[in-house]
Amino acid sequence: MENEILDKVEDNATVRVWSEKLQLEKGDSLVKGYISELWDFSHISVTQNELQELRDIWAHWDDETKQLFYDNYGDLPYLLDIKVDKYLFQAMAQFWNLAYSCFTFGKVDLIPTMEEYTTLLRCPKIQVGKACSRAINVPTLVKKLMNITGMSEQWVTAQIQQKGDGKFIPWVSLRDMVLAHPDVKKKVDVFALSIYGLVIFPKALRHIDEAVADLFD
């Protein structure tokens, strides 16, 4: 069994080297002199955010608020009850290509398409032609959160936390807003942002990453 695992690691390393060499020759985002940080073994953390607070909030909403959510964001709440298969994550980790953020199977690189994300999230309103484009004048994180939450610049600035190289907003701040916000539309928006940050694209436990706010906005 141990030899089989080592063989898999060696095969995966060969594929990564081939993939990076070929794509570097043809020109892409890898800079000259790039060295692949390939580990013989990786520690995979499958720790998840606790989602019970999100479930409780959803359960206490009336039908009108829930329908407003469905109309704007599709069936995202169903993700709150999906069980993550940690063994599947561990099995797939050996095929994850760190250099290109995709899965490499043999000589084939695979990454979910926008159509697959649309189906996964059950949100048909995703504009496929615009999802991967970026506006020329990108607003700051503060401006994005002001737009999403409807809160003042002073309040938003006070909530943003720096963690390493990234900026985050704590879930507790968004939770309190969802529970008390007088604007139902903004309450729904913040709840959707929370699902994106805690369930779909989690990075730091109980925090929503700046990149998620960027994508959501």
Rank of each mutant, 00 (worst) to 15 (best):
Q48D: 06
L51E: 06
E53I: 08
E53Q: 13
R55D: 03
R55E: 10
D56N: 15
D56A: 14
I57F: 13
I57T: 08
W58D: 13
W58N: 12
A59T: 07
H60Q: 13
W61D: 04
D62G: 11
E64C: 09
E64N: 12
L68N: 09
F69A: 01
F69S: 02
Y70P: 00
Y70K: 08
D71A: 11
P77Q: 06
Y78M: 09
L80I: 03
K83H: 10
D85W: 01
K86G: 01
K86M: 07
L88V: 10
F89H: 09
F89K: 01
Q90H: 10
A91G: 00
A91E: 11
M92Y: 01
A93T: 11
A93Q: 15
A93C: 09
F95L: 02
F95K: 01
W96K: 04
W96I: 02
L98S: 13
A99S: 15
A99E: 12
A99K: 07
Y100D: 07
S101M: 09
F103E: 00
T104C: 03
T104M: 04
F105M: 11
F105E: 04
F105H: 06
K107T: 12
K107N: 14
I111D: 00
P112T: 05
T113C: 01
T113H: 03
M114Y: 03
E116M: 12
Y117G: 00
T118E: 12
T118C: 13
T118R: 15
T119M: 09
L120N: 01
R122Y: 07
R122L: 11
K125N: 12
K125G: 04
V128P: 00
V128L: 15
G129S: 15
K130N: 11
K130H: 08
A131V: 03
A131Y: 02
C132T: 12
S133R: 11
R134G: 07
A135R: 14
I136Y: 07
I136G: 05
N137G: 09
P139H: 10
L141I: 09
L141W: 02
L141P: 11
K143D: 14
K144L: 15
K144F: 01
K144T: 03
K144Q: 15
L145P: 02
N147G: 10
I148R: 02
I148C: 09
T149W: 07
W155I: 13
W155D: 15
W155K: 14
T157Q: 14
Q159G: 06
Q162W: 00
Q162I: 06
K163I: 14
K163L: 12
K163G: 00
K163H: 08
G164Q: 01
D165M: 05
K167E: 05
K167L: 11
K167R: 14
F168L: 05
P170F: 02
P170N: 02
W171Q: 06
W171E: 05
W171M: 07
V172A: 05
V172T: 04
V172M: 05
L174H: 02
L174M: 13
